[in-house]
């Protein structure tokens, strides 16, 4: 029972990290119907920026704020300079552009920061807990609290504010929303900024959690998050969160109990195939 609870907790922590990286992707797909693969590169840049500002100021809060600001700007730049002009083409055109941005940004990170794995020597100042006989390390408490706070913020933003209303309107029908007097382009940019800011937080958290920041840290999330948003239902934010948590838990339990040397990433894709075959709208999607 002990072991099971401990594994479950690890699974939720990993699932939370997946959720933070995937959220931006789900938001962008929901509003523009673009598979924003380059989101993983924004996450990588977030980790590097967080480390840079942390090293310069010695404060994790400043590091985080710098990463959030930098990534929000980067996200909006990608949207304004690349995706928006390409919207008139079929969806695979922005997708190809997105893959190109991913590779280019990864190389920029490598050229600027060097090929070495950098360490992120910051501490998340959260308490280590002892619940139901299970030790919860402070890093896990930190990840759970931060994820919960971001999810609460996002829920409030999308359901309780006018901006959220506009975001939902634009995602339902861009042309009609425009006709109703919503500045849809501003709403799209805002969505990119929010998604990218969350990716920045995810990058910083992952950098601290594993104490590693490197230029290819986005390559696994780049394809895994795609599987997650398909499982969750394309464009559905609650779906993306649920799929992330389920996947994190499933992976952890599989490794903990079944002695299968199956790469954990395989599970995400098995789930994606199953969803595509039996419930193509995903867990939370609508047809």
């Amino acid at each position: 029972m002990h072991l099971f609870l401990e594994q479950l907790l690890n699974g939720v922590a990993i699932g939370s990290i997946y959720a933070l990286v995937t959220l931006g992707l789900a938001l962008v797909y929901g509003i523009l119907r673009i598979l924003h693969v380059a989101h993983a590169a924004v996450y990588t840049v977030g980790a590097y920026l967080g480390l840079l500002f942390f090293k310069m100021s010695g404060s994790l809060l400043v590091g985080c704020a710098g990463a959030i600001a930098g990534c929000a700007v980067l996200g909006v730049a990608i949207e304004r300079l690349i995706y928006f002009p390409l919207l008139k083409y079929p969806p695979y055109v922005p997708l190809i552009a997105s893959i190109a941005i991913l590779l280019a940004l990864e190389e920029v990170c490598r050229l600027v920061a060097g090929p070495y794995i950098l360490t992120f020597p910051a501490q998340l100042r959260f308490p280590a807990l002892h619940v139901l006989g299970v030790d919860v390390p402070s890093s896990v408490t930190g990840i759970l609290c931060i994820t919960a706070a971001i999810l609460a913020f996002l829920w409030f933003l999308t359901t309780r504010t006018e901006t959220g209303l506009a975001m939902r309107a634009v995602s339902q029908d861009l042309a009609i929303a425009d006709a109703m007097g919503i500045n849809s382009h501003a709403v799209i940019s805002f969505t990119f900024a929010v998604g990218s800011a969350i990716a920045a937080v995810a990058g910083v958290l992952v950098g601290i959690y594993y104490n590693q920041v490197y230029s290819t840290m986005g390559s696994v999330p780049a394809y895994k998050t795609l599987a997650i948003i398909v499982v969750g239902g394309l464009g559905s934010v609650p779906g993306a969160v649920a799929a992330s948590l389920l996947l994190g838990i499933a992976e952890t339990l599989l490794i903990g109990y079944a002695h299968i040397p199956l790469p954990r990433d395989a599970l995400a894709f098995l789930a994606m195939i199953a969803v595509l075959m039996w419930r193509s709208e995903g867990l939370f999607g609508s047809r």
Partner: peptide, 11 residues
Amino acid sequence: KEKDFKPYLAA
């Protein structure tokens, strides 16, 4: 490419 070893370590 594993980064998270907690499931193994818990076992």
